[in-house]
Design a protein around this nucleic acid. Sequence first.
DNA 1: GGAAGTGGCGTTATATTATTACATACTTTC
DNA 2: GAAAGTATGTAATAATATAACGCCACTTCC
Lengths: 136, 136
Amino acid sequence: MIAHAQPELTKNQALVFGSLSDAGGPLTAYAILDLLRENGFRAPLQVYRALDKLVEYGMVHRLESLNAFVACSHKGCAEHGTAAFAICENCGDVSEFTPDEVIKLLKEWTQAEGFTLARTTIELRGTCRDCISQPN
Amino acid sequence: MIAHAQPELTKNQALVFGSLSDAGGPLTAYAILDLLRENGFRAPLQVYRALDKLVEYGMVHRLESLNAFVACSHKGCAEHGTAAFAICENCGDVSEFTPDEVIKLLKEWTQAEGFTLARTTIELRGTCRDCISQPN
DNA sequence: GGAAGTGGCGTTATATTATTACATACTTTC
DNA sequence: GAAAGTATGTAATAATATAACGCCACTTCC
Ligand SMILES: [Zn+2]
Ligand SMILES: [Zn+2]
Ligand SMILES: [Zn+2]
Ligand SMILES: [Zn+2]
């Protein structure tokens, strides 16, 4: 949908994206900061500035209900339609998916309302299959 | 969907709900606190505790992408299905709606995934009809 | 009545998340 | 080389949210 070529990342952007990719799940900005202190990071703004760009490039998604960030789950972060997220409140796992039919319905609603849609947040909170089947 | 009888509100809950109803739009917890200082409010917890209950009762909704709260737009706050919100980034207006078909599709996804859904956040950001037609 | 439990409230302090402001450095463009 | 644009570093602060403690009112159970 949003067509971004895979951009050259600056040093800080690459470090932040690496942290998120390695984590394999959501991290808060301050968690990233702590991970990157050994790489010379000293202040939150270094993280937030990189995150702003990475989100703009579509390589990282912001989870509004967690105030956290997660690397896009797609290979090479190819551009894709609006994403939705299922967040397990037990283990913290986040599943990204692309509910095209849902997006289509929401777009129809906005068009009927005359609302110009810029950005859509869809976040499901609950318990993932693994946590249900393995109650610890 | 969620069946809550209209509960008796405590004094603080009534004050907070009144602020949100009067505002006719979203307020942050600290904005509510400032509004209620003349009513004796002194600390954020007084607001947050009331908001927790009001959200639990379904009378107030939390807007995750704004870190703000809004009174339910339904008369008497009758229980209703999962709500979605269209938020105008120009004028701040928030429209609450109940996209039942969207919710149905999302539920189908969660059932297929074995994900036990507890709570759904759907927030659309953009520009409302009025702000489009009256560009200031 | 008294003990124990529950829920709301008030207050202080603190934690967490995010931005403002200003200075420096480097690159691209003309 | 000047100008503009972009990335960076740093300190300070703003904005959002919770922890911890004690008090009071009320209920329930013996
Ligand atoms: Zn993605
Ligand atoms: Zn889980
Ligand atoms: Zn509602
Ligand atoms: Zn508007």
